[in-house]
């Protein structure tokens, strides 16, 4: 049953901007659905929502809650923490927890002509083995925005000034496809660049640890097995973004 978000118009306007890519979706779509009602309120398919705070804080909280709740309801997909990028036939998964460098690496790959599918939550269809785009805003701090600017990505991104503090969103996204390569990033300041190919069992264990708790079922684990058997998986430890991007691109050639 859809839950309804009501509140200050300024806050809802902000929320509407953050969730804009999801607003055009039909409610039957299993991913996050969000729409504006005729009376100006907003409706989403999720559980009850209750919060308070400044306009920005409420919008930030709602964005997180609505997107995560919607993703949880998208239970038929295997959900992994991580980013994904695509260029032509190449679709690279960048699974990793917060702090592993997946957002920065996603931006680095974008600067090399890749389109993002997500920087946050990988949605894998267990039957088709395809990954779909998840057009959630990127959560970015000042240093990540500086990197994006240095990479010349400002025109490819909707920046915080047009969204909300701490958020940016790519203007263009990749399309659903079968992953061709998996790279587990590990940003480690001062570390020497290191690339290791993982055996399927090692890859399986690493990816299982990055699965969302709600997505852990035998169907999803079978999908994970097919994924690691069909897709070469690497772990990259890096300090310099450009080196990591270059190494990953070489893997796909």
């Amino acid at each position: 049953m859809p839950a309804t978000v009501v509140g200050d118009p300024q806050c809802l306007g902000l929320l509407s901007k953050l969730l804009a890519p999801f607003s055009s979706r039909a409610f039957a779509d299993p991913c996050a659905a969000f729409r504006q009602l005729s009376d100006g309120r907003y409706a989403v398919e999720t559980a009850t929502l209750c919060t308070s705070g400044t306009c920005e804080a409420v919008a930030d909280f709602c964005e997180w809650l609505l997107v995560t709740q919607a993703a949880i309801h998208c239970g038929d997909h295997l959900q992994l923490h991580g980013g994904a990028v695509q260029r032509a036939e190449q679709l690279i998964l960048l699974p990793g927890l917060s702090g592993s460098g997946k957002t920065t690496l996603t931006l680095g790959m974008m600067a090399s002509g890749f389109l993002p599918l997500t920087d946050d939550l990988i949605l894998l269809d267990p039957r088709q083995s395809t990954v779909r785009p998840f057009e959630r805003c990127f959560h970015v701090d000042a240093s990540t925005l500086t990197i994006a600017s240095e990479l010349g990505l400002n025109k490819q991104l909707i920046l915080p000034e047009a969204l909300a503090q701490g958020f940016c969103r790519p203007r263009h996204w990749g399309v659903s496809g079968v992953p061709t390569c998996i790279v587990l990033p590990r940003y480690c300041p001062g570390a020497k660049l290191e690339l290791n190919r993982l055996r399927p069992a090692q890859a399986w264990i690493a990816l299982a640890n990055l699965c969302m708790v709600t997505g852990k079922s035998s169907v999803h684990f079978s999908a994970l097995s097919r994924l690691v058997e069909q897709t070469p998986t690497y772990q990259i430890t890096y300090d310099h973004l450009s080196q990591a991007v270059e190494t990953i691109i070489q893997l796909t050639q």
């Binding site: 399927p200 069992a201 399986w204 299982a208 640890n209 852990k216 684990f221 994970l224 097995s225």
Partner: peptide, 23 residues
Amino acid sequence: VLTQQLADGSTILFDPQTSIAHE
């Protein structure tokens, strides 16, 4: 405990209580 057998002959056990996988 979930058992997954991979094509390379290895087997993985996944303990849903601890979320730990064992090869």
